[in-house]
Design a protein around this nucleic acid. Structure first.
Lengths: 201, 201
DNA sequence: GTCTATACTCTGATAGAC
DNA sequence: GTCTATCAGAGTATAGAC
């Protein structure tokens, strides 16, 4: 994708991606239509295809942008910090992503649910490597007796599962809680408590 | 839906639902096509529509069947049992559902991700009521000092999130773990340990 | 750069023969 | 009950005027 040069191109490209994120995350790739995206973006359908060669290309661009945002919090977990604080911070940042970027979370969930046809390479490469790297740090902390011993990869899975649940299953969470709840605030307290107990050496 | 009478009708209806579960769970509602379902079921497309009036009807039938299976383990959690054993059993049964019925889990996940357009009524009614009922039991156990105090609804959410993750994100789990792992066996051990620590009074 | 018009394909559903 | 043929609508993408 060549980078747009004029200000109008920048603006329209952004509007398209923003609209596409709305629609793809809510309807899935096949469920989304260019008509919907064009309407949300305030452009005509052919104009959409002036900026991106295809529906597929829009989707691919979104997934690429997403991945970095998604992995950053884990990248920031450092071996020389306080183990429990580092893990709690990671969990908190993932929960904040769920809260503030639920569309991105659902876009990702849709993609993985369907076997990750478009980002399999990144899952099997970048993501797997990053988890392996951070698992070593976790194991070192365990061996130093600073956190409880457990499978480090499943510990990471647990953080993904527990935080993404609040974005991906938002509809269910809110329906079950009923009115007068702040799901993310409550989740923050609950998960703090959970990981304090789980990690204590 | 009137119940089929002949053996052939029984058999074909079952084959269609089985095939549809395959396709809907992997592709989502919009992503699935009647052609795909017909091919997997070994029938012609018009023949499919002889048994079910529409694509929508097939999907609806699947979701209806799913819901009972999905709620049964929670229904079985009894106030007069041993609190920790009851909760552990519930978690284990949910994990077994993820392991043995991953397609059902993904069908459900697809539906919730997209705002549960077709089962919203059941989420807001049956499911919400069941969770409220079981939350009372959990709170009673907490007040009796038999398990640690915490938000009972988020405790239930945590079980859903942690167990369904292994079905819904199966592709990611396996990719990150790499070869030579049994995700569900490892998850079982990890989650046992997690909930022992979390629930201890 | 943007729009109208349109080509072409896919897909859900129906008609009607057997 | 099952099949072939086919319709109608939706949806992606392109042509070409402005």
């Amino acid at each position: 994708m060549s980078r747009p040069k004029t200000r109008i191109q920048q603006k329209n490209s952004q509007a398209i991606l923003e609209a596409a994120l709305d629609v793809f995350s809510a309807q899935g790739f096949r469920g989304a239509t260019l008509d919907q995206i064009a309407e949300v973006a305030g452009l005509s359908k052919p104009n959409l295809l002036y900026y991106f060669p295809s529906k597929e290309a829009i989707h691919e661009t979104l997934l690429k942008r997403l991945l970095d945002t998604w992995l950053d919090p884990l990248r920031e977990m450092k071996a020389d910090g306080d183990p429990i604080a580092e893990i709690m911070t990671y969990m908190r940042k993932k929960l904040e992503l769920s809260q503030h970027y639920p569309r991105e979370s659902r876009l990702f969930a849709n993609e993985i649910l369907q076997g990750a046809p478009r980002i399999r390479f990144a899952i099997e490469g970048e993501l797997k490597d990053l988890v392996a790297e951070k698992s070593k740090i976790l194991v070192a902390w365990m061996e130093a007796g600073r956190i409880a011993r457990m499978d480090p990869v499943h510990l990471i899975f647990s953080i993904w599962a527990l935080t993404q649940h609040y974005a991906d299953f938002d509809m269910q969470v809110r329906a079950v809680l009923g009115e007068g709840h702040d799901p993310f605030a409550e989740a923050g307290g609950f998960l703090d408590m959970l990981y304090q107990k789980l990690l204590a050496p």
